[in-house]
Amino acid sequence: MLFMLTGWTTSLVFAFIVYTLVVSFGNPGKALCVLIMVMQITGAGGAFPVAMLPEFFQNVHPFLPATHAVDAFRSAIAGIYGNDYWISMGRLLAFVLPMLLLGLVLRKPLISFNAKSIATLSKTKVLG
């Protein structure tokens, strides 16, 4: 059951992050989501131990949501030691707070910025 709870929570948090960035920034938000995804694949510690990663990824590691999702999945699979599962889940859910701030508070001031960037992008005719 913990594995399923982790999967549901992880998918909701990641969907929330992607939706907020795309709604707030438009096409640049999509690019930012791809950049975050690529960094998480390498830096979350799911494929290689963090100690074996380059120093940049070791420094970024704690600030990636996938890090805490991987830790929660490991705890759900291998067993909980102390409160490590719940701490990982809490840290994962903490990524929702800045997205709420961005989506609910900062989105309105960003609308004019988005309009300007879309107008500039359409002039280049790069995206059709």
Score class of each variant (00 low, 15 high):
A72H: 07
D71F: 00
F63Q: 04
D71V: 04
L64C: 01
I77D: 12
N114S: 12
I77Q: 03
Y85A: 02
L104G: 12
Y85V: 01
Q40D: 04
L93F: 06
A69V: 07
A47M: 15
V70G: 02
Y85L: 10
L64S: 00
L101F: 13
N83T: 11
L106H: 02
L64Y: 06
D71C: 06
G79W: 00
F95P: 01
L102Q: 01
M99I: 08
A78R: 15
F113V: 14
I87R: 04
K108I: 10
L64T: 03
V70I: 13
L93R: 03
V96P: 05
I41P: 09
M89E: 08
A66S: 06
A44L: 02
A51I: 13
T67V: 08
E55Y: 09
M52R: 09
Y81K: 15
R107D: 11
G103Y: 07
F113W: 15
N114P: 09
M99P: 00
F56G: 07
A44M: 01
V38F: 11
K108Y: 10
N59C: 15
L110Q: 07
R91L: 14
M99S: 05
D84Q: 03
R107K: 10
H68E: 04
Y81L: 06
V105L: 11
Q58K: 03
P49R: 09
G90D: 10
M89D: 03
M89N: 05
D71A: 15
R91A: 14
G103H: 01
K108M: 10
W86T: 10
M52W: 10
V105K: 12
F63R: 01
L100A: 08
A69E: 02
I36N: 12
